[in-house]
Computed example of a mutant assay.
Amino acid sequence: MGLSRSGDVVGIADDALTFALEASRESHPDEYMGLLRGEPASEFDIGHDGLLVTDVLIIPGTESNPVSATVKTSMVPNDFSSVGSIHSHPNGVLKPSQADLATFGKGQVHIIVGHPYGRDDWVALDREGKRRSLPVYDVDLDDPEDFFDFTQEDIDAELGIDGDEL
């Protein structure tokens, strides 16, 4: 196992980064903003303890324009365990602004994605806005489409209902 504590963010899943890059590109020229969610890295056999960023959560009601994005904190799910944030800089500057730094208090890692939103157009930062390492891992994540892959028969079986009873 790698050298990290069980709660440390040790990397980001390639699919999560790809999603954020695409969302940033689609939001351009406005800023994009989301929250990062992690899962135990041990579930992905990457040789590390800690957390792997696996999801980018889009918060309903987020307001965005070319110079800022604001998340409505009242819309953040109560059960959501954020490990940080991600947002874009349409001007391509990969340095945090003073406003960015003011929002970095929660979470371990904060990502800024810059125009033109390519694979090398992002940085990971700590709470103080200093660059930090965040390796990208090509891991198999659960397909969100699979969450809805069930039939009425599956529901009946889960509830213990015999189809002939109806």
Rank of each mutant, 00 (worst) to 15 (best):
R131F: 12
D138E: 14
L134T: 06
L159D: 11
E128A: 15
L125S: 05
D143A: 04
V139H: 03
E158C: 05
V123K: 12
L134M: 13
F150D: 03
E128T: 14
L159K: 11
E128L: 13
P135F: 09
V139D: 04
V123R: 12
D142N: 06
D140A: 13
D142C: 01
D120P: 00
L159G: 00
V136W: 10
P144D: 11
W122P: 10
R127V: 09
L134Q: 09
P144M: 04
D138R: 12
R132A: 11
G160Q: 08
Q152K: 10
W122R: 07
L159S: 03
P144H: 08
L134V: 08
L159N: 12
L141Y: 07
G163W: 07
D146W: 11
R127C: 14
D142F: 11
V123G: 01
W122M: 10
F148E: 09
V136P: 05
V123P: 00
R127G: 15
R132E: 13
G160C: 07
L125Q: 06
D138G: 05
D140M: 07
D126P: 09
R127T: 14
I161W: 13
V123A: 10
D140V: 10
T151P: 08
G129E: 04
R131L: 14
F147S: 04
D143N: 14
D154H: 13
Q152D: 13
F150T: 01
R132K: 15
D121A: 14
Q152F: 05
F150V: 01
G129N: 04
K130Q: 15
F148I: 02
G160Y: 09
E128R: 11
E158Q: 13
I161T: 05
D149M: 06
G163C: 00
D138Y: 00
F150I: 00
V123Y: 02
G160R: 08
D121V: 00
E145M: 07
D149N: 14
L141T: 01
E128P: 00
D149L: 10
D138C: 02
I161H: 10
L125V: 07
E158M: 12
D143L: 03
D143K: 04
G163E: 15
F147T: 02
D156R: 14
G163R: 13
D149G: 01
L125N: 05
V139G: 01
A124R: 01
P135M: 09
V139M: 02
R132P: 05
T151N: 12
T151R: 12
V139W: 01
D162K: 12
A157V: 07
D156E: 15
A124E: 02
L141Q: 03
D143Q: 02
D149A: 13
E158H: 10
L125H: 01
E145C: 03
D162F: 09
L134P: 05
V123Q: 09
L141H: 04
L159H: 09
L134A: 09
F150K: 02
T151D: 14
Y137D: 06
W122V: 08
S133N: 15
D162W: 06
E153K: 14
S133E: 15
L159I: 06
D140W: 03
E158W: 12
T151V: 04
D154Q: 05
V123M: 06
A157D: 15
